[in-house]
Computed example of a mutant assay.
Amino acid sequence: MQYLKEEMRNKIVDEALKEFLKSGYKDTSIRTIVKNAETSIGNFYKYFKSKEDLYETIVEPVYSRLIQYVNRFFEVEVNEKMQEIFYSLLEEVIKIFEENRNELAVLLNSSKGSKYENCKKIFIEFITRTVTISFEYQLSMYKKAIEDNFIIKLLSYNFVEDIAIVLKEKRNKREVRKLISDLLEIFYGNIIGKLEVREI
């Protein structure tokens, strides 16, 4: 009997994930989820307190993992080993994107109206800061500093938007990984020479 309960809970989660991807948090209704899961609203409330509780069940584990890595990036000491550590942490982040494509697609594309609706902004700020720190360290070798990192902010905004599209449109893990790596190269591969810098 316990197996059947777990099976129904998983079915509700699976149908909710599809519906959140299609309609977004705000426009998804519990009625549609339970209809697609072939259960009742009464039965839904045996498993989840609310739509918000269900949404959190889906996105919170992957959101928390990402935030842990974000915090680890910010703990990295600025020195010659920084680049190596950044790349190793970035590899772990890409693995999360590969393994949790649907949940992240929901988080980045469909969180309006939920408590996670600012997650895109958090990731944009995180990427902007990480890239800025990395380039500042490289420039410091030549006794230069970034005068204005506005171009990095713009690129980071577009990078996160593009990742959101990749996660929503692409199914294959290998393809997701390649596209994210390609986007990193396209956006940040050759911009250090285009930054506004000053002598220090």
Rank of each mutant, 00 (worst) to 15 (best):
R65M: 09
N149M: 07
F73M: 12
M82H: 03
Q68L: 12
E91W: 02
Y69I: 12
Q68T: 14
K143Y: 12
F126G: 02
L155Q: 00
K112E: 09
E136M: 07
L155P: 01
E84G: 07
T132M: 08
E99N: 15
K120N: 15
L154F: 02
C119L: 12
Y55D: 00
T130Q: 07
K51A: 09
K49L: 03
L107A: 09
Y63D: 02
R101T: 03
K143D: 15
S114E: 05
S140H: 07
K115C: 08
E60T: 13
F73C: 09
E56W: 06
V131P: 00
S140Y: 08
K49M: 00
D148E: 12
R72W: 09
V34N: 05
E91L: 09
E136T: 11
K153W: 02
T132V: 01
M141V: 10
E80I: 15
E147D: 13
K46M: 05
S88H: 06
T57I: 04
T128E: 04
E99R: 14
F126M: 02
K35D: 09
S114D: 07
N43I: 06
Q83M: 09
F74V: 00
F123R: 03
Y63T: 08
E136D: 11
E136A: 10
V59R: 03
K144S: 07
E75V: 12
E52D: 15
A105G: 11
V93D: 08
S114Q: 01
I67S: 10
K143G: 11
L154C: 07
F123G: 00
L54W: 09
V62M: 02
Y55H: 10
E84H: 13
E91V: 02
S50W: 03
C119Y: 15
V78S: 11
T39A: 15
L139V: 04
F74Y: 14
K112Q: 10
F48D: 03
D53M: 05
E125A: 13
E56F: 10
E147H: 03
S40C: 13
F123Y: 12
E98Q: 15
F150R: 08
E147F: 08
E38W: 03
N79I: 09
I33N: 05
E77W: 03
S64T: 14
S114A: 03
